[in-house]
C-alpha cells in the first residue's frame, strides 16, 4: 500500500447525480479525464465502467448525490480520482455489499465488487443512516 500523499492536480469538477442522464454525464467526465491523464485504452474503459457502476449505485441505492472527479498525482505519477457521495441509507454490512452477487435491489450485485476490481485504489466510507462515499483512483502506468 502506497502511503504517499495523493495531491489534486487542479480543481476537481462536480457532477450532480439525480437522474439517468446524470449517470451518462458522470461517465463522460471520467472518460475525458482518463484521456487527459493518458490512461491506456483498457484502463480508460475499466475506470469509466467502474464510474458507471458507482454513479448508478449513488442514484439507485443512495437516492442521488454527487460525483467529484479530477486529476491527481502521487510520487510524480498521474491518476484520475472519482468520488461518489450520497446521503442515503448507508450500507449496514460492508463485507456483504462487497461480495459478488449480493444485492439489496434489483441489480446483479456486481456494482461495488466489480468496480473495486476495475480500479487501483478503492475506499468505501459508509455509515447506516448518514450516507456512503466511495473514492476510486486509476493510475497511469
Amino acid at each position: 500500500m502506497n502511503t504517499s500523499p495523493v495531491v489534486p492536480d487542479a480543481e476537481h469538477e462536480t457532477v450532480p447525480i439525480a437522474t439517468n442522464d446524470d449517470v451518462v454525464r458522470a461517465r463522460q467526465l471520467v472518460r475525458t479525464l482518463a484521456q487527459r491523464c493518458k490512461l491506456s485504452l483498457v484502463d480508460q474503459t475499466k475506470l469509466v465502467t467502474a464510474a458507471s457502476e458507482l454513479a448508478r449505485n449513488t442514484l439507485v441505492y443512495g437516492g442521488g448525490g454527487v460525483m467529484r472527479a479530477g486529476l491527481v498525482r502521487r510520487d510524480g505519477r498521474a491518476g484520475v480520482t472519482a468520488v461518489f457521495e450520497d446521503s442515503g441509507p448507508g450500507i449496514p454490512d460492508v463485507e456483504q455489499a462487497l461480495t459478488d452477487g449480493w444485492t439489496s435491489g434489483g441489480g446483479l450485485g456486481l456494482g461495488l465488487s466489480g468496480a473495486r476490481r476495475l480500479v487501483d485504489d478503492f475506499v468505501l466510507d459508509t455509515e447506516p443512516g448518514s450516507g456512503t462515499q466511495v473514492a476510486v483512483t486509476k493510475w497511469a502506468r
Binding site: K46, S113, A115, R117, L118
Partner: peptide
C-alpha cells in the same frame, strides 16, 4: 465487441 470492453466485462464478473 471491443477488446477493452471484453477485458473489462470479465474483470467486472460478467
Amino acid at each position: 465487441m471491443r477488446p477493452a470492453v471484453a477485458i473489462t466485462l470479465v474483470e467486472l464478473g460478467l
